[in-house]
Design a protein around this nucleic acid. Structure first.
Lengths: 357, 357
DNA sequence: GCTTTTTTTGACAGCGCTGGCAAGACAAAC
DNA sequence: GTTTGTCTTGCCAGCGCTGTCAAAAAAAGC
């Protein structure tokens, strides 16, 4: 490394042993400037002479200097920490959210703290409030069902921490949100079934605590009524997004001696899998006897035959966008990405579980 | 709240507005003691008079005081932050690990930072070293395949951060580890197949970068040789833990005109699913024509028929135990839980994919 | 009673960094 | 030339807490 190239680093300063952490002081001494100037360079602040900047950067490189995040947080206004709160049993969903958020965080040197919470705990609000008092997070991301809980919103707002909600159902406009248009997706899926000739369509509701469940049902009924089809109440079954609840719904649909729909729209894939499992056991063929479609594009779908027609949610992209809203102020992009309700596109994936009749 | 009950809190001190964060100073003033004493109480240090302790606790409660984690970290020796590094595409595995670690962390007020890494990045070592220099973590948890990579171990050791490896393959004794006995599990699974009358047993190897893959194969061959069975090299197929590689292996096994084993032991469930998918397409019945067993008890197994015989790994418990080793010094339990190689029990789950012949 | 030991408490420095402000350097304007 | 304005840089305080050490208080010993 050619030090002389720009300015002169102080001679005779000991270089660090491997594994030693060097502080801003070491860099300042080596570069022959004040620590404040080093701080300016490390934070990309303006008003530093190009020559000085280079000199500091070289010293920092030489010492393998990395600013101490904790000290920065304590002294400054930012903690470089984003938190994500969730209570969701679906590992693949959570994993996608985490990956999306982390991908965006890394671009700005932020780190991610994960904080699973029990949505039914009576201490939920206290837990969140305590957590936010303990760690001054720069932003919080809320996923369903927490993002629709009054106590959660209240705790985060009281702490004054910026937050973004992913796929909320209630309180639009109360915070920035990122989501896809679930009602629209369900609407289009239903239209697809209708186009395929189905008019006797059953529906399995999702977990009532998840806002998305309601939106999906809304989209379904809207498409039905626009097509002049009157939904049959006994063909709408309550589910809870789980495989087992899908099994129950399937049993109810396929009960002997009853008429059954020609297609069933399940609010998510897991329940669709449950229905398909029951169908197989009862000798009901899919899609020959009943068409099935789901929602979410769950990863298990390649395991079962036929592959289910479903809606793909861009979960990771949504999470990335959510983190983006939180980090936007770093870039100074005020109006553009903040205080928004961002809608990301979904995808209707046609596979083999729906047939034309 | 009866303040007078023990000591007298200072009168005339303003209570905080909702959402305001109070500092150790506020508590000290209200309780009429020095901040150092408050610090002692908050950290459960000895040598505080019971009466004083109560007085401080009441003041802290009244003010909803929560110590600032960042300030504690900077001033003290601990950061209350644990990091987990991973590069694993399996969401359910990662999720279990996270949940186990968090469960243990919460007991001591620690928080979890997740740091997915690209195992094949040329910057891996630099990334980890930089990260550890930026945030002084109190401990790091390494999962496969990172836990077997020299550069990763080197980076963590150079930073002087305590770490625990989950299910490592190489370098036993280099750090505390937590795992289950994968070789033993594979051994017992193979014995089970042999007991069921199988002597012609195929094997699908796992990803060569994952140590567990080798251990599973070792257990397999050991059981075979103990039973006096000579393994056929052409019945050992290379897989990569993915569904697709299982499909490939299945095709190879079931190629027309060739003799095939009566049972196939797949190094994990996803590959077993792939094999079963191929079998179904080719009209090969399971378990009538071929018995199949897997490893890991992947969540998708309830979706496919027959349910696969497999090994259940107590992933969450392993992760919990790993965090425990890291936090053990908080409890002062030196010899007991540190510097150990903890082995957790597995479970052989017999389902319908293996039949006696 | 007094002295010695132990327990309890507080003063103070400082962790590594940033924010505010003022001083110094330099260029532009008069 | 001097004055004004702008750009660079450094000084200092302090973020909220813990570690060290010494002082004060209480308990124990004689």
């Amino acid at each position: 490394m050619d030090i002389k190239a720009s300015g002169e680093l102080k001679a005779g300063v000991n270089l660090p042993a491997s594994g030693t952490v060097s502080t801003i002081n070491d860099v300042a001494r080596l570069a022959g400037v004040s620590i404040k100037t080093v701080s300016r360079v490390m934070n990309n602040e303006p008003n530093v002479r190009a020559e000085t900047r280079t000199k500091v950067q070289e010293a920092a490189n030489l010492l393998h200097y990395r600013p101490n995040l904790l000290a920065r947080s304590l002294a400054g206004a930012r903690s470089f920490l984003i938190g994500i709160f969730y209570d969701n049993p679906n590992p693949s969903y959570i994993n996608s959210v985490q990956n999306g958020v982390i991908r965006r965080c890394r671009e700005n040197g932020y780190h991610l703290l994960i904080e699973p919470q029990d949505a039914h705990s009576p201490d939920l609000e206290r837990n969140i409030a305590g957590l936010l008092a303990t760690i001054r997070l720069d932003g919080v991301i809320l996923t369903p069902p927490l993002c629709d809980m009054a106590v959660v919103l209240h705790a985060v707002e009281a702490a004054g921490v910026p937050y973004v909600r992913i796929s909320p159902f209630l309180n639009p406009g109360r915070s920035p949100t990122v989501r896809m248009d679930e009602a629209r997706a369900a609407y289009e899926m239903t239209q697809h079934l209708i186009e395929m000739g189905h008019r006797d369509i059953g529906f399995v509701l999702g977990h009532p605590e998840h806002g998305g469940a309601h939106l999906r049902y809304q989209g379904f009924t809207k498409a039905l009524s626009e097509a002049g089809i009157t939904p049959r109440p006994d063909w709408v079954k309550q589910g809870f997004f789980s495989y087992e609840s899908g099994v129950d719904a399937g049993k109810a649909f396929f009960e002997a001696g009853k008429s059954r729909p020609t297609a069933i729209f399940s609010s998510n894939d897991y329940m669709a899998f449950g229905i398909m499992g029951v169908a197989q056991q009862m000798g009901i063929r899919i899609p020959e006897d009943v068409s099935i479609c789901g929602f979410d594009d769950a990863p298990g779908s390649i395991l079962i035959w036929p592959h289910v027609t479903t809606i793909r949610q861009p979960v990771e992209d949504i999470a990335y966008a959510a983190a983006e809203v939180l980090l936007a102020r770093d870039e100074g992009e005020d109006g553009e990405k903040r205080d928004t309700d961002r809608l990301l596109p979904f995808e209707l994936i046609k596979r083999n579980s729906v047939r034309a009749i």
